[in-house]
Design a protein around this nucleic acid. Structure first.
Lengths: 222, 222
DNA sequence: CAAGGGAGTGAATGAAGATTCATTCACTCT
DNA sequence: AGAGTGAATGAATCTTCATTCACTCCCTTG
């Protein structure tokens, strides 16, 4: 037998679960469409159709179109943060941690495709406040990479470069596949793209005396 | 005394000049506005006001809004092609030619500011056909850099990397300042950005035996 | 089983803004 | 000077959505 409080809690939990799954359903539908066309040519009706619900329902979960777009972008950036933290855990060597983080970013990009770079395309359509949030989240998503870079430099494995510069370069290089896939895919696969950029980036900063230790990452540049 | 034909030619030339200057005036006004806000929030009325003409007039020079946006983007890409060809002429050494081309791209970016990367933000709002044109122009603008890279590799100055990859990376690195200025400018000037990226990029591919020859470009990474 | 409440619907509303076009204006040629 | 030409104007038109809300449906509770 349930107490009335337990019943209320259960109902509460069910509602929350429903709300979450609907939000997710709408975010995914919107992300799919926004990956193909700019937010300006994606109507709320389109999103509703894609999600298989009515227009009105969207407004139950998001205040307005702008909020929806903002939520989609934040969702993507959150995915980056989460999905990169994990592979990085396993690596003790900071240089390999850099490579793992980069590979992590790249795999999220590969999976989300065009949605991965919505921030580049839609940021001007956001409210200034929302834009700031997006920037903060992006910087935050570069954090694991930046930490590993600092460490690698401190350990004397890398030359003395600005870790903020180096880490952000790598992050944006991961994005670049989504932005310029139409070009790079003419002559390389995503896997090759990741490998060659790992090699190029490390090659530019690895101290000569440690190159041999990372020959596997450097490939032909070893 | 003029022949009637000469008179007609003169009139023709005057008309052409007028058309050109109006087009330019409108393109500049539109580029200014598009640099600040997405095309979706820039109305034809806004463009007209910014240019100091009436809405109707815009339609005399551009078929519709989309064509105007497309023309602005093509104009920017044309600027890249033109402005980079020149500084590159002067350098005999292919490695220095790479650096000069990169500096050229960067200086166009610095000058055009946000308008430089309109292609990233607006490409999804363009007609598929227009999008193709934009891609072609972008690839074309990387040509000088690609040629110099090929030569440098052929001359044995650089390691054997894919010139298409390397050159496009550099081109997009130039764009990156416009895309992420809000971040990089927290800790470096545009000049430092250019210098450090020149150094990083060359450092990754310069063969060890030639590093000394380019110590000035490599800076602290020499 | 009836009432209550929230989820979901989709037609109606209103605003924004792209595009048109009748009209004015300035200039050139005869 | 008078006619003709094309540039320029901007109010009116026409569409396209974002947003609202009166309504239906279903589930839970008493």
């Amino acid at each position: 037998m349930q107490t009335s409080e337990a019943r209320i809690d259960a109902a509460e939990a069910a509602r929350t679960a429903l709300v979450d799954s609907r939000r997710r359903q709408l975010l995914n539908a919107a992300a799919r469409l926004l990956g193909r066309a700019g937010s300006q040519s994606v109507s709320m009706q389109n999103v509703a159709d894609e999600a298989g619900v009515s227009v009105g329902l969207i407004y139950r979960y998001f205040g307005n179109k702008q909020e929806l777009v903002q939520a989609v972008i934040e969702d993507v950036l959150h995915e980056f943060s989460v999905r990169v933290a994990e592979p990085v855990q396993d690596e003790a060597d900071p240089v390999r941690r850099i490579a793992a983080a980069f590979a992590g970013y790249c795999s999220v990009v590969q999976e989300l495709r065009d949605a991965a770079v919505l921030a580049y395309q839609e940021s001007k359509t956001l409210e200034p406040e929302g834009r700031e949030t997006v920037k903060d989240l992006e910087v935050e998503s570069a954090e694991p990479l930046m930490a590993a870079t600092r460490e690698a430099i401190h350990a004397g494995l890398l030359r003395d470069v600005n870790p903020r510069l180096f880490a952000y370069d790598l992050l944006t290089t991961a994005h670049l596949w989504a932005l310029k896939r139409w070009y790079f895919s003419r002559f390389m696969t995503h896997g090759e793209y990741v490998a060659q950029h790992t090699a190029l980036s490390l090659s530019s900063v690895l101290r000569p005396e440690h190159r041999a230790d990372y020959a596997d990452l450097l490939g032909p540049l070893a």
